[in-house]
Nucleic acid binder design. Structure first.
Lengths: 347, 347
DNA sequence: GTTAGCACTCATGTATAACGAGTGCTAAAT
DNA sequence: ATTTAGCACTCGTTATACATGAGTGCTAAC
């Protein structure tokens, strides 16, 4: 469909524009080393590429900028694999050498290093915790009327919630119940926990607690409350250093989308394996129509998935970002797998 | 020093400017109901007020805007107490009716309601936890090489940290030690804990653990790591809806300051009791030289203090913000006191 | 097929003028 | 002695015109 020369020119234009953020003119292209044609030839080719929808002008006599179709083609067929600098690789390596032992911290650090190395905004969706297994369940009384429930999983995730003990529940009952729950539920995955909640746990409560309905509600609230996956964002202000974002309203709507978990989280959650690139209007969210979102998945142990994403202008350093995401998700997988396996052979 | 008429005019100008963000002209003032003088008279007074440093012009023939000295005078002597709307009071009330039982959530919700009601950015410094007392200390093994340490305080605060168990520490030793620690340290305030760490705890470890030095380091890290107070920020994007912030660089430097805890936290921490107002250059941070920061303190139980702050342009609705902060810190104090007292009579 | 040449387009920048909100000052009115 | 009306003046804002230059499309020559 496209000639070799057209491919070359398209690539050069997009590479140039990604660097400069300025419309690229025919003369500038013809001066590049890779290109041996005169500006007039380039102009003809550019006119064709524009007609095919890969390029566009900002006004009738301007140079060309890539269209979304152009970026799409670039990402799918054109871009050269990026060789990360040793410095960057070291920076990443260092992040994982700290041997932090909570995945929350690993994820947070990963988000930071990504935004630092790219100057874009990184968003990481923490792993779903349903597949992780219950290690310990505890209720620690704080006073005669309040207590804190603590749930620990095999991944080292701790989730807790304070609650006030209703007057019609006997604290002693509560304690026996928790002990029983602990025995009964040890090693159960949080997903199963959700199911067992309504059967086994409820039965157990009926037998051992006076006001079982109330107790059930409380225990349920304590255990299942916090299970929505966490978002880790880093480099929010990076958006503002991109020249395409000089309009405050645009920045604001983008930042508020990022701050609202319920908008971003579902988008990240439904991602399939591997690297995904959404360019401009391919994004669902109105506020992201001038942005590209590149996502990669990672896993904790066997199956649980989380998502790493980088958000930048459509004029993004796709190649570099994709390399980085690959390297980083690899590191995360390795780290998490190590922990998980330690876990497995203990069981 | 200032005549009644000058006071009136100054007040009217500042009130007007706080609403409109536009330089106020003499004719606009003379048309107000409270003012009975002609524009020429007002002009003369304004010239005097400017000479005294309370007002300034944006250019030689513009209306007047308040200077920082003008705002300072307004805040100290001029502004009328603000009557909060019933709607606003209800919104606040509702926040506290949810009877959440963790102060983290109360604080988070408070920050949200503040930014929502003011359209400024709210920053709350979580309470210092040193005065709170240790309720329970636990180490839960995750695998043969890793464990999670959990510390629960009487305020329902849970702090945890995973760590890998060094090969030269015997897990059994660890468990006995923790049990001993738990007995010995129950009810100790986290402040005392810091001291006892180096004396009692170290001794205890010497007696019961083989590799006590290493164990000490690990336990220390696990317990004392997370004690820096938390910042809760809400409404970051509100800054961008203020007309004085149309410069992206200004916004960016402000937002990055807010995101960096080590910059903001010390400023909030050193605040004395009551409401404090810092106007423009009175603020330490360069990035905040066009802003005002209004802070109030709250206490958890007896002594532990945290700080609530609102950050906006120097053209701030001082009166409303101060009323809101008073109401909100009152609610927080009351809520926390209730919890704390329940605690006390149990002890 | 490629390229030199040229007329044309349009964003950007600068100079100029008209407009109007608002001031300072003076002189008249209270 | 105050207060106010009147008026010249200032300066930011907006509109207009014009020059500049980067870049194009097209034609004709190579």
């Amino acid at each position: 469909m496209l000639t070799e020369r057209q491919l070359l020119i398209l690539q050069v234009i997009i590479d140039d524009f990604i660097q400069s953020a300025q419309p690229v003119g025919s003369r500038a292209i013809s001066k590049k080393d890779e290109v041996t044609y005169s500006s007039a030839t380039i102009r003809n080719e550019m006119a064709d590429l524009e007609e095919m929808g890969f390029l566009q002008k900002t006004h009738s006599s301007s140079g060309r900028i890539p269209s979304e179709k152009g970026y799409r083609f670039y990402v799918d067929h054109l871009m050269a694999p990026f060789r990360l600098s040793d410095r960057d690789l070291e920076t990443i390596q260092d992040t994982f050498n700290d041997h932090l032992m909570e995945y929350e911290k690993v994820v947070q650090k990963s988000a930071e290093v990504l935004s630092e190395l790219t100057n874009y905004t990184s968003i990481i969706l923490g792993p779903e915790v349903y597949e992780t297994r219950l290690k310990q369940l505890q209720i620690i009384p704080l006073s005669s009327h309040s207590a804190v429930a603590i749930l620990v999983t095999n991944t080292g995730h701790v989730q807790h919630r304070s609650f006030s003990i209703p007057v019609d529940i006997d604290p002693a009952d509560l304690e026996t119940t928790v002990n029983l729950l602990n025995e009964r539920l040890h090693g159960v995955s949080l997903l199963e926990l959700n199911e067992k909640m309504q059967t086994e746990v409820l039965d157990l409560l009926k037998k051992h607690t006076r006001n079982y309905k109330n107790a059930y509600e409380y225990i349920k609230a304590a255990l299942l409350d916090d299970q929505h996956a966490q978002l880790y964002v880093s480099g929010k202000t990076n958006i503002m250093s991109q020249p395409e974002f000089k309009d405050i309203d645009k920045i604001r709507s983008l930042l508020s989308v990022i701050e609202q978990e319920h908008q971003i989280a579902p988008i990240l959650r439904k991602n399939a394996d591997g690297i995904q690139v959404s360019i401009g209007r391919e994004n669902e969210l109105e506020a992201m129509r001038d942005c590209s979102l590149i996502t990669a998945t990672y896993s904790v142990g066997n199956e649980q998935m989380g998502t790493i994403a980088l958000l930048g202008p459509t004029r993004m350093e796709y190649s570099k970002v994709i390399s980085l995401l690959n390297v980083l998700s690899g590191h995360m997988n390795k780290t998490f797998r190590t922990w998980y396996e330690i876990d497995e052979y203990r069981k």
